[in-house]
Design a protein around this nucleic acid. Structure first.
Length: 531
RNA sequence: GCGGGCGUAGUUCAGUGGUAGAACGGCAGCCUUCCAAGCUGCACGCGAGGGUUCGAUUCCCUUCGCCCGCUCCA
């Protein structure tokens, strides 16, 4: 029953998005293309506002984060370093009998789902040939279609940040801890795009890579590392924070962001990945999930990625990804020898573990890890990373799902009718204010309304409408999620007495209440409520 | 990728081997002194391709897309 209701809600939402111009199927006149969606006039505004809010929140309003806008196609070696070529392109075998799909190189180690006593390689299910299974979109750079010209559309925006880490560090006058933020398209050849726009093949990400000192460096400088003492926001960043504090800080910051654009905490769930679920390089990962009608699903992942990413690029590119930390350099010689040794040993073990997992030969791994530990004592390290990574499209979908509402409103005859209203937060509403003349066939009303449109237009997205009855125009804006409608009536013109001259009615989307506001105060009145 | 269901107007639906209608919506005009009013008119569709047929939206095949379940999900 609940399932049927949620399905109905999604169907209504999809119809509304189509009808009002939020979201269309891509290439619809040719029958559409699976996993691709376009944003119409209202959707484009919504998404733009969403990204704008994120950008303000994550970079402009902070001193310690800067932006980046990198290319979608990058050097293919980036995806070898990141691990995407390996994990995204295993040849797979499908079993037509049990419908299972298996990695071709693991058939001898994977039990058959039907007869677990046998391995897949020895069961009698009918299997396909191994087929390459690449979740990255491939393309050719340059006109020659040859293997060495193959490149990929990025499956995530993050790697560009790591690849440009050194350039940004050197030009931005930032010091660790600091972050690099980026918004951009990413592409994944998903097996099954599903749930409307939730899992699309072309999508947009908003990612922050926040670079922090390794705990050993914090400890060397400040004596000890501050760790979380309980749940909740830990307050303003402190220099002695270790990775756990930073991770918790970003989880809480991100939730505050969602609250600021109209997703209350009650609509969200935190999912802390269990140790066995974590990627091998991750120390922790929290998914911020939204309770979609089709299930509770991830909006954003906040991962503590250790120094894995920059380390990989250091190994693959041969360029050092270390930073020099003057405070660490100054603090180190003042430490007792035993402390130095203990910190170096811990750092060494961490580096050795990483290098070994990445397949370096034991003796080489030991040499490299020893070098890293020596560098630490001189003030050099590879920064660790906290990565809050959000999907723009699924967030837009979450906002639409949360905003969709139906209530009862009286029509002209006083009968109750169902009113569809998108209760979007004013910050992200595509249209901030609609301006109407009460009647279209009175030139004085129209003229005044157009003046008000022009008055507000430099400051916000305004929509002017004079077609049909006023009630109909209100309802149209309700479906678009417009928080305020301004109507110019005969009072505005001074026909009902001088005291209401040059005032307008402002109608509130959610309460349908009307307020009389002087035109002179209108801009300020609205801006206060749109902030 | 597998199995099942479904594709008719912007939306929700009806219908037929002789090339389609309703409601709501949209646009234009008239009207309308605050919540989808009224009148008049207009526009828009059988997902695509192929086959059978004198003729296909209807039957057949292919394909694309959507929904559900499974699978997958760095």
């Amino acid at each position: 029953m609940a399932q049927a209701a949620s399905q109905q809600l999604m169907e209504k939402l999809v119809a509304l998005c189509k009808r009002r111009g939020f979201i269309f199927p891509s290439s619809e006149i040719y029958g559409g293309i699976n996993g691709f969606w376009d944003y119409g006039p209202l959707g484009a505004e919504l998404k733009r506002n969403l990204k704008e809010q994120w950008w303000l929140w994550m970079t402009r309003w902070r001193d310690d984060v800067v932006g980046l806008d990198a290319t979608i196609i990058m050097h293919p070696r980036i995806w070898e370093a990141s691990g995407h070529v390996a994990t995204f392109s295993d040849p797979m075998v499908d079993c037509k009998t049990c419908k299972g799909r298996f990695r071709a190189d693991q058939l001898h180690e994977t039990p058959c789902p039907r007869k677990p006593s046998k391995m897949v390689s020895e069961c009698d299910g009918e299997k396909t040939e191994p087929r390459p299974f690449n979740l990255m979109f491939k393309t050719i750079v340059g006109p020659i279609e040859s293997e060495e010209n193959v490149a990929y559309l990025r499956p995530e925006t993050a790697q560009a940040i790591f690849a440009q880490f050194k350039n940004v560090l050197e030009t931005s006058r930032q010091k660790v801890p600091f972050g690099i933020a980026q918004i951009g398209k990413a592409f994944r050849n998903e097996v099954t795009p599903r749930n409307y726009t939730f899992r699309s093949r072309e999508f947009e990400q908003m990612e922050l890579e926040f670079f922090i000192r390794p705990d050993e460096a914090v400890e060397a400088i400040y004596g000890e590392v501050a760790r979380p003492t309980g749940p909740g926001h830990p307050g303003s960043p402190q220099p002695n924070w270790g990775w756990q504090m930073w991770h918790q800080y970003w989880v809480e910051e991100r939730i505050r962001f969602y609250e600021s654009i109209g997703l209350p905490r009650t609509t969200l769930e935190e999912y802390w990945q269990r140790p066995e679920e974590l990627a091998h390089y991750a120390r922790a990962c929290v998914d911020i999930q939204f309770k979609f009608p089709f299930g509770t699903q991830e909006l954003e992942g906040i991962a503590a990625r250790s120094d894995f990413d920059l380390s990989q690029h250091q190994r693959y590119s041969g360029k050092p990804m270390t930073v020099f930390d003057e405070e660490l350099r100054a603090a180190w010689p003042k430490l007792p020898a035993s402390r130095q040794q203990e910190l170096q040993e811990r750092y060494y073990r961490h580096r050795l573990g990483y290098l070994t997992r990445m397949g370096e030969a034991a003796d080489k791994a030991e040499t490299l890890a020893r070098q890293d530990a020596e560098l630490l004592a001189k003030g050099y390290y590879i920064p660790h990373v906290i990565e809050p990574s959000a999907g723009v499209d699924r967030l837009a979908l979450a906002l639409l799902c949360h905003a969709y509402d139906e209530d009862q409103a009286p029509n002209e005859k006083g009968e109750l009718e169902t009113r569809v209203v998108l209760r979007l937060h004013p910050r992200i509403a595509p249209v901030k204010v609609a301006v109407f003349p009460l009647l279209k066939n009175r030139p004085a009303l129209v003229e005044k309304a157009l003046q008000i449109r022009d008055l507000l237009r430099p400051w916000m997205n305004v929509f002017y409408d004079d077609a049909g009855a006023i009630g109909r125009r209100y309802r149209r804006q309700d479906e678009a999620g417009t928080p305020f409608c301004v109507t110019v009536d005969f009072e505005t013109l001074g026909e009902k007495g001088p005291e209401l001259k040059d005032t307008v009615t402002v109608r509130d989307r959610d309460t349908m209440q009307q307020t009389r506001v002087a035109i002179a105060d209108l801009l300020g009145w609205l801006q206060e409520r749109l902030r």
